[in-house]
Each structure stands twice: as C-alpha cells, then as structure tokens.
Design a protein around this nucleic acid. Sequence first.
DNA 1: TATTGTTATACTCTATAACTATA
DNA 2: TATAGTTATAGAGTATAACAATA
Lengths: 155, 155
Amino acid sequence: MSAVPSLLRDLLPRLNELSGSLRRGKLFERAVEATGLPLERPAMTVLGILHIEDAPLRVGEIANRMNVVGPHVTRQVQGLESRGLVRRVADPDDQRARLIELTAEGKAAAERYIGVIEDWFAGAMSDWTAEDRQLLDRLVTRLVEDLTARLSDLD
Amino acid sequence: MSAVPSLLRDLLPRLNELSGSLRRGKLFERAVEATGLPLERPAMTVLGILHIEDAPLRVGEIANRMNVVGPHVTRQVQGLESRGLVRRVADPDDQRARLIELTAEGKAAAERYIGVIEDWFAGAMSDWTAEDRQLLDRLVTRLVEDLTARLSDLD
DNA sequence: TATTGTTATACTCTATAACTATA
DNA sequence: TATAGTTATAGAGTATAACAATA
C-alpha cells in the first residue's frame, strides 16, 4: 500500500473535524453576539466581504464569493438594510443590478465581528512560527484552487 | 502592520472558501449517489466512521467523532438499520448502551463511498509532492488541535 | 432571448427539550 | 442521582422554481 491513500484517509477526516470543531465551539456565533446585533451569521459574512472589498458589490458578486446562490444573499441583504447596516443603490452601468454598500454602522459592525474572530485565531495560533503560518496559508490556498478546478471539470 | 494579522485575514477566507467550494461542488452528494443508496450524507459519515474503526461503536462515541449531539446519530442509525447496513446490539458491559455494528452490506457501501471521495481527492491533488501532502496533513492536524484546545477553554 | 435580482417554498443538517431505561 | 439513548420539535443555512425588470 502506497503512502498516498493513507495520507488522504487521514487528511479527509481532519478537514471534517476542522469544520465540526468550529461549529460545535460556536466561535462565529460568539463573534456575532459580540457585535450586539440580532443578525444571522451569513449576514455577518456579507458585511465582512463588503468590508474587505472596501467598495460596493453586486448581489451576484457577493453570492459568488460566498459560494451560495442569489436568493440567499437577497434575504441577508434585506435584514442588513432594515437595520441600516447596508444601502442598496442602483448600479449606474446596469439598471438591473443593485450595488450593496456598507453604511458607517455596517462598517463598524464588520470590524467588531472580524476583530473577534481574528483575535481568537491569533490566540489559538500564538505558538506558530511565521514560517508555519505562511506554509499553511500557501498549502490551503493551493488545495482550494485544485479542488475548485476539479469541481468545475465535473460540470 | 505586522505580518500576522494580514496572514489571518487571508487564511480565514480560504478556510471558508474550502467548505463552500466542497458544498457547491456537491462532491459528497455525488459520492452518496455512487453508492446507489437513498441515504443522507451524515448517514454515510456514520458508515465511514464505523468502517475506519473496524469495530462496533456506541451511539455516543459516534456522536463525539462527528462533533454532533446524540439524537442526530440516533436518527441516522435508524435509517441505516432499516436498510440493513448496520445492526444495533446491546453492549454486554452496560445495558443502557447500544453498539452499532456494520453489516457486510454496510461495509461494502462504506467502501464505495470512501473510495469515490478518495479517488476524487487523489485526482485533484495528483500534482502534489509527497512532501507537500505530508506538510498539509501535519499543519491541518495541528490547527485542529490548537483550535479545539482553545474552544474547550471557552467553556 | 439572456441576465440580474426577488419572492415563495422546500430541503438538509443539527440542536434543544422532555422522556425512558439502566446504572 | 447520573448516564445512554430515544422521541419530538425547532432552527439555521442553503437550494430550487417561478417570476419581474432590464439588457
């Protein structure tokens, strides 16, 4: 038996454990609570994407980055808009499209949310060397690229 | 600005993208279909855990490994039992407990399921050197350990 | 005719609460 | 009184289908 299959037998459960561990620890729920806003987690993800982009984005573009379909984003944006965290403005280049834009309040909420998560991760990884952090980032980035390419082959 | 925060700003979206990419690609759903069984994905996860363990496990132990609560496992096991893929036998050491045991059919289904996923991952990672595979496995393992330890600190 | 977004609905996964049986 | 599991119910997250408006 070659080493490759056994490694995959180990890596796959680890990846599964990673998501399960984060879910069960309710890290993201705690981060949402820290913002003091009665929002669902995907709504905070929308805020985070807009904050990182630092520019208005279309509904479809947000959906792409979240790996979800349009209607899901529409619902989240509605909740965010009703609380004054984002604005929906018409795209001057295309009247069908809507640009979603952070308000000052939305920006502040995104910073609190991202800050809690990053501080928490930084604490959990405080023993890591800069080399190992970079290595993990590089390898995970590559894994995502390769998996995504392979997945689009299936269609 | 130090390199640490910016690295975390990159790693977190990558991890998010990883799970989103796998979900959207429906890799696991395809693997379930490949078994030809009308089961939910978590049920296949139960089969996979029993197969890797290669021994009967308690409901509670399966729940721990899946990072889920007991009732969820109970439901999955019911579906598996009604299709003859597992057997529920009383634990001789404790009459309260139930040991979940793979049948021959269940074992075959688990092998088909795991085989499809592993082949697919092996294809996606075919360009990877043995060193990079081991490195990724090592770093992800460590990440899971550190995150899990930090999460249990919260309680 | 194709694309952007919305509305309405349904499905998957998992949790919580209340309960039973055994320890 | 505590633990293992089950039953019943609820919630979060996301998808699909049908539609409207604009291109």
